[in-house]
Design a protein around this nucleic acid. Structure first.
Lengths: 210, 210
DNA sequence: TAGATTGTTAATCGATTAACAATC
DNA sequence: TAGATTGTTAATCGATTAACAATC
């Protein structure tokens, strides 16, 4: 494991680098300078270099541009996109089914192996070749498949109860798409994916213009 | 308009405060201390106070807790959730239809007034009482309704072309759900809502534990 | 009045930027 | 070799935390 500390801001930039490098490789480009990356990110090239140095096992050669392929490898390794984590999804509504149908999570080291809901019309059907179980089977599936990650796309009203349940069943990380604060013991990783924050920034940036 | 500068980090916290305060009010609680809010956020109470001071038109009384209702008002005003911005959504796929069906955007000052797609099965139908138009009608609708904000949920391959089109039609802000970098003139506000970043942080935090 | 909690100012911490030497 | 681009170190900048005076 890396010992150097990474700030959250920095961490958020790595997937953006990776995306950009993948698209470069797609266009047949195999060398890249920190300046090019910086232009895309609208940030300084020093920052790009610092970021990339942190995740590069071997130094780049001064004067020579970096190899796109190498950087992609470094980034994928660092971000843990090489090994796949299995996750379950709770709440197969609009958003939940969109996520279950999304094919690209494998590229990010995540695989949704099952969905859970209470709607009889959904239970025991499949979506994107993944089974949907009744919420009552939560403990059985988590135990059988040794699941550690849950994706939460439930209605607000039941979300906290489900979190309590998940925690008691040994889930260690929750990716929360429900726009509310969830209580959980400190050792549980809860990552809130909150569009309210993104929307607030959008609105603020629009207002700055005027 | 507020003249004090707000950092992005800070801006991201305001919707979380608002959410928490709304749930407090829901539980019939009408007073709150910065300590309570700080506990929920897992941050320092000084930070909470600084943040709230910035958006409060009048000072809180030393020694007395803050009024939940007042804070909610301040936050909604500051975040611009009082006036509604009309937006269109391009790409009515899984994610696009989930967003169009989501009823809660009004609370955040946004309203999706129409969707666009090229699928004949979708075009001229409605979703959540909102019309879906053929992409060819983009310029007409944007012009007629004087739309300034577009939500992008298109396939990667066509996204950049659509962005170019949107820019040429006078769109000033794009809320981008497509996991790729989009090129646009500097004066266009592009807010990327990228789950790759959120997922990277989740994975990193899980790995920290082990 | 005493306790609680506030706002303000100063100190610390961390991240970004700038300058420059190193070298392919 | 000269030009390009790198990594490293130091300087700046901004945000968070700590200390404390103010007052309901």
């Amino acid at each position: 494991m890396k010992s150097k500390k990474v700030s959250l801001r920095q961490l958020e930039r790595y997937p953006v680098y990776l995306n950009f490098l993948l698209s470069l490789r797609n266009s047949g480009i195999d060398k890249v300078s920190s300046r090019q990356i910086a232009d895309m990110m609208s940030c300084s090239e020093e920052q790009v270099r610092k970021d990339l140095q942190l995740i590069s096992p071997k130094k780049a050669l001064p004067g020579r541009q970096r190899e796109v392929g190498d950087l992609i490898e470094y980034l994928k390794n660092f971000l843990g996109y090489k090994k796949i984590n299995e996750a379950i999804l709770i709440g197969v509504g609009h958003l939940g089914s969109a996520l279950m149908s999304f094919r690209g999570f494998g590229d990010f080291g995540l695989e949704i192996v099952a969905g859970f809901d209470i709607d009889p019309a959904l239970v025991n059907s499949t979506l994107a070749e993944k089974p949907i179980y009744d919420l009552g089977e939560l403990s059985r599936i988590i135990f059988e498949k040794n699941i550690k990650i849950a994706i939460l796309t439930t209605p607000k009203s039941v979300s906290q109860d489900i979190v309590d349940k998940l925690v008691s069943l040994g889930i260690v990380a929750i990716w929360n798409f429900v726009p509310m604060h969830l209580d959980a013991p400190k050792e549980i990783v809860i990552e809130n994916f909150d569009f309210a924050a993104s929307l607030a920034i959008l609105a603020h940036r629009i207002n700055q213009k005027t």
